[in-house]
Design a binder for these strands. Sequence first.
DNA 1: CTATTATTCAATAGATTTATTGAATATATT
DNA 2: AATATATTCAATAAATCTATTGAATAATAG
Lengths: 219, 219
Amino acid sequence: MKGREFKDAMYDGLSKLLKALSNPFRLEIIEMLSQGEKSVEGIVQTTNLNFANASQHLQVLKNNNIVKSRKEKQYVYYSLVNNEFLSLYQQITKYAIHEIAELEKIMNRQREDNKALNAVNLDELETMIGNEDVLLLDVRPAIEFEFGHITGAISVPMNELMTQLKGIPLDKEIIAYCRGPFCVLADEAVKLLNEKGYHVRRLDEGYPEWKVKQLEINQ
Amino acid sequence: MKGREFKDAMYDGLSKLLKALSNPFRLEIIEMLSQGEKSVEGIVQTTNLNFANASQHLQVLKNNNIVKSRKEKQYVYYSLVNNEFLSLYQQITKYAIHEIAELEKIMNRQREDNKALNAVNLDELETMIGNEDVLLLDVRPAIEFEFGHITGAISVPMNELMTQLKGIPLDKEIIAYCRGPFCVLADEAVKLLNEKGYHVRRLDEGYPEWKVKQLEINQ
DNA sequence: CTATTATTCAATAGATTTATTGAATATATT
DNA sequence: AATATATTCAATAAATCTATTGAATAATAG
């Protein structure tokens, strides 16, 4: 293989990976799968995609080694191929949030609207964990909490927050978190709890980011 | 802005960045610009693109805040927008090389063909720098060496290697490097020098990777 | 002022990507 | 066996991306 052919082959392969990532729906699917495996139906429920379309996007991700699948009964469960990919995805989103001015602006407006501007970051969270006066609140759906959650968190899914208010102490500092920086569940939780008089902030990232950070610490 | 609109806006913005990156020629342009600024003609010379096409790809990169340009006389000089982007690009390529089996295979074959399999990595290089018996050889074009090079390296552009052989000592361990992991200049240098009896290996990455590593160390 | 060089613009055809639709397949339930 | 459910497949039209071509612009040199 001549030098030119080699370069072409490498850039071709790299661009195929990036092409597979360069679609907003597929990015959203990746975020969903970074919470744990999901059936196609699970994907359909939390995105605006129909079955055939979701399946098609999942094929693209699978053909590019971004997700893998296993079949159980009539269901096909998809999940991210490994933590290395998850880490790469997070590095890309982190860059986008901090270096693309337009995205930074949109994000600030979203957080402002939901009184979630003074978010806690993962480093700050670390110093707070174990503190008796801090309550870590996971507002994702229960199934995602079961697949994995930040140590010490309690699960109160966003759609049950109103009915479970009595279980949440008014005198603690509450940190709400969800799927990641693009997830709005924690924003909604902050807004709602704030109006009820709670002292609450959101984590600026989510469970998958915490998980990757733990992996890096323990390696 | 409703939660759904927010998510859509963020994933849209992120996918636009990735779309701008998902073209093999644009990736090659990025690698060229990570050596320092270049005029459109400079890009045309080292890629297989014609002027209009190169200019078009450069516009795409510019519109997505990946490169910036300045005009001097009749020339337009393009460069990467900042080191944060350079670092992201390198993280993506690093993932591709190590986690995409097909690319890893192609790369190993390329290195095997050019006797460059036992490459030195940046950590190993660090322990060798300053050693009197090690000669660090930059085989990129002279202009790229001038824009920046690894401390202590000497410049012998690949196309002058044959004529400058007498200046290269036979008794030293030689480490050749060039633009990065996809660059074949160092492979060719290893092959040529090897056949002439030199003790030579290549750096598995290139000058831009060394530069980003220095930035991280000094921050 | 004219010619030359570097770059961009504009138009277009071909290739690729995507959403939609309806049918096909596979597994479980009755 | 018949039905229901979950998923994939196949075909297609619309949208987008890309390379090519030739013209337009801008700066310099003669």
